[in-house]
Every structure is written in structure tokens, then in C-alpha cells.
Simulated scan of single mutants.
Amino acid sequence: MKRVLLLLANGFEAYEASVFTDVLGWNEYEGDGTTQIVTCGMHKQLKSAWGFTVIPEMQINTVDVSNFDALAIPGGSEEDGFYTDAYQEEFLSLIRQFNDAGKYIATICVGALPVGKSGVLKRRKGTTYHLNGGLRQKQLASYGVDVVNQPVIVDQNIITSSSPSTALEVAFILLERLTSAENCRRIKYLMGFQGE
């Protein structure tokens, strides 16, 4: 079983989190059956951007990285406290542990910023939210990341993306890396994203 830890900060974007639960869930039931997703946060209850409440299955201080194959981090809203959680040392340390173990780290939009701040993307390619004058891309660059203005960037084990519109693509890339291209095509077909 390929286990994915969905790391949520307060203020996370529910849509960006849901693509991982849906794509990997479809695979668990309709694909090769090898993926499982586990939600994790720094609090017993989390509030997403715009007020959607979630109770994570695990607390961040109980995670054993050896029990997981990948880390998924949706972006979030500054106004709803995303960076307050995502820039905590405990959050950044978990990112480093996954990277040090050579495990996949998949991020959407500003989910790349804590990855950059953790130091694991230094001198590597990445991207993040690209609108509003490129403010978030400048922040990512300040962490030593070679920012590429493209929708999705894969640099070794780390996947970053530029906006919520890329969310499904990131989830499918992660599924393909964890299973196979053929299995990923099957899930896309079953979900109605491509023909046979």
C-alpha cells in the first residue's frame, strides 16, 4: 500500500486538498487499489479558507515518516492563517524528513512556499502562485529556489504548481509516480477526464 500524508495547515484551500483525496480515493476503489491517504494537521480541528472545518486523522507530532510514501501539501489563504501553521518549525521539519527519505512531495499553489522555506528546494526548480505581480514567486525565489514560470514543475521528488487550476494535474502526477502511467490513465478515464 502506498500511503500519502495530506498535510493541512489552517486556512488550507479545500479544493486543493480534495483533489488528492478524490484521485487517490478513486485509485483505492477503482484502480490498482494501492493508495491510501491520511490527513494530518497541527491542531485537532482545522478551518479551511472560507470556513470549511476538518478533523485530521493524525497530529503532526505523531507522524512516523517511514510509514508513508509521499507528502501532499495544498496551498491556502494568508487571511485565514495558512502561513501561521505552514511556517512553524514542526511543519518545516516534517517536509525535510520526507525529502531526506527521498519521498515524493506534491504541492499546489502556495503549498510550495513552506517547502521552499524548509530549504529542500534550494538550488532546485520550482513554482508557486504567479498572479498579483508575482509576489509569491518572489517569496519562493528568496528561499534560493530557481523559480520557473510554468504551471507545474517536477524537480526530482518534488512537484510544485502555480495555481488552483493545476491541482488535478498535480494529483494525477503523484498517482502516476506512486503507481504507473497505465493505472493513472485508467483513473483519468473512470473520472471522465479522458477517453479510452
Rank of each mutant, 00 (worst) to 15 (best):
M1T: 14
R3K: 13
L8A: 01
L8P: 03
L8F: 04
A9V: 11
N10C: 13
A14N: 09
A17P: 10
V19A: 05
L24D: 00
L24M: 09
N27M: 04
Y29C: 15
E30D: 11
D32M: 07
D32P: 02
G33W: 06
T34A: 07
T34P: 03
Q36M: 10
V38P: 04
C40Y: 02
G41V: 01
M42P: 05
M42K: 11
M42L: 15
Q45I: 11
V54K: 07
P56L: 09
P56V: 05
N61Q: 12
T62F: 07
D64R: 10
S66H: 13
L71M: 08
L71W: 01
L71P: 03
I73G: 05
E78V: 11
G81P: 06
F82W: 04
Y83P: 01
Y83T: 09
Q88F: 11
Q88P: 02
E89Q: 14
F91R: 02
S93Q: 15
L94A: 08
L94M: 10
R96E: 05
Q97I: 05
F98G: 06
N99R: 07
G102L: 05
I105N: 00
T107H: 04
I108V: 12
V110Y: 02
V110F: 00
A112N: 06
K117N: 06
S118R: 04
G119D: 03
K122P: 09
R124Y: 09
L131H: 15
L131A: 15
N132F: 12
L135E: 11
R136P: 12
K138C: 12
Q139V: 15
L140C: 03
S142L: 10
Y143G: 11
G144F: 06
G144S: 10
G144W: 09
G144Y: 10
V145R: 06
V148F: 13
V148T: 15
Q150I: 13
I153L: 01
I153E: 08
I153D: 09
V154T: 08
N157V: 09
S161G: 04
S161F: 03
S162Y: 01
S162A: 13
S163G: 14
S165W: 09
A167F: 00
F172L: 06
L174R: 00
L174A: 01
L178G: 06
T179C: 06
S180Q: 10
A181S: 13
N183A: 08
R185T: 11
R185C: 14
M191Q: 04
G192Y: 08
Q194W: 07
G195T: 15
E196N: 14
